[in-house]
Design a protein around this nucleic acid. Structure first.
Length: 286
DNA sequence: AGGCATGTTACAGG
DNA sequence: ACCTGTAACATGCC
């Protein structure tokens, strides 16, 4: 669940459930995530109040007084909130319910009768704790390009960045130093909406295509956030059900299917670009 | 059994 | 320096 919209949904639901809560106990089952969980985590965060939860790109940031906890969910990281009745509440949109307790790596017991659980099957996620450090100084965040929704991500920036670059557009959009928060799904979807072939050399894009592409990146992310948001708002109705965003996929995972554009007779093709699956319509993305 | 998976990083080689 | 492909990380699902 790891691209910008999913992280945004996690952030919003965490905010609703645990913002301003105080951590009263921490249990660490497995320190071996992508990076070792700092041994000081317990000591530093106990009795600390969560002042704010924010997102930068695919990173979540828990704000404490003079401390920041940076979290990346990797490929399979999930936050769950368990209430005192012990029923697991979903705080993000999982597309299945195969959440095994054996992959619960960290428990944060809170003073609001909730326990925040970090569950991560593949353990590519990580936690880093920073003290007395501004957000802008965090190495992981420093190298990130602009947020897709930011004013900084505009045609001018785009054109300047691709000058003298030979990359294909798929890899450019996957490059977090160019624009941050996109991943394989939304890059594929945005390129489809923009009728751009994923292997197109970015420096060959016309100004108008770039404009369209920027607009569609923002559009697909927003639609997804709206869908995820609506599926999470009333989690009882959606508990155990697929996230709504999947129904908006035009190309991702749709190999050999017909193009969803009514007027298009094309088929969705799958190719590998830099070892990642790329899906595109062989007719309208030429 | 082997390939694939929403992410990131390191490395080799062009 | 830039770009691409490959592998690695760990686990589960076709």
């Amino acid at each position: 669940m790891p691209e910008l919209p999913e992280i945004e949904i996690v952030k919003r639901s965490l905010f609703k459930m645990i913002n301003k809560a105080k951590i009263i106990d921490i249990k660490i089952n497995n320190k071996n995530l992508r990076y070792k969980i700092p041994g000081t985590l317990y000591k530093k965060l106990i009795n600390k109040k969560i002042l704010k939860i924010s997102r930068r790109s695919k990173y979540l940031i828990f704000h404490f007084k003079d401390k920041l906890l940076l979290v990346h969910l990797g490929m399979s990281g999930k936050f769950l909130v368990s209430k005192k009745n012990n029923k697991l509440l979903k705080t993000s949109f999982y597309y299945d319910l195969n959440i095994l307790p054996k992959h619960n790596h960290i428990y944060f017991m809170l003073n609001n009768n909730c326990t925040l659980i970090y569950n991560d099957v593949r353990r590519f996620g990580f936690f880093k704790l920073y003290e007395n450090l501004d957000l802008e100084k965090i190495t992981f965040l420093k190298k990130l390009g602009p947020e897709p929704f930011s004013n900084l991500f505009d045609v001018k920036y785009f054109i300047k960045f691709i000058k003298n670059r030979q990359k294909n557009i798929k890899n450019l959009l996957m490059d977090q130093t160019f624009v941050s928060g996109l991943g394989n799904i939304y890059v594929n979807e945005a390129l489809f909406l923009s009728k751009i072939h994923p292997l197109k050399k970015c420096s060959n894009l016309k100004r108008n295509s770039i404009k369209t592409l920027i607009r569609n990146i923002i559009k697909v992310l927003k639609i997804s956030i709206n869908q995820g948001g609506s599926s999470i708002r009333d989690f009882k109705n959606t508990y155990g059900k697929s996230g709504n965003f999947q129904q908006f996929f035009n190309v991702y995972g749709r190999e050999n299917k017909n193009c969803s554009r009514i007027s298009c007779k094309g088929k969705i093709k799958k190719i590998s670009i830099s070892n990642r699956s790329s899906f595109y319509c062989d007719h309208c993305q030429n």
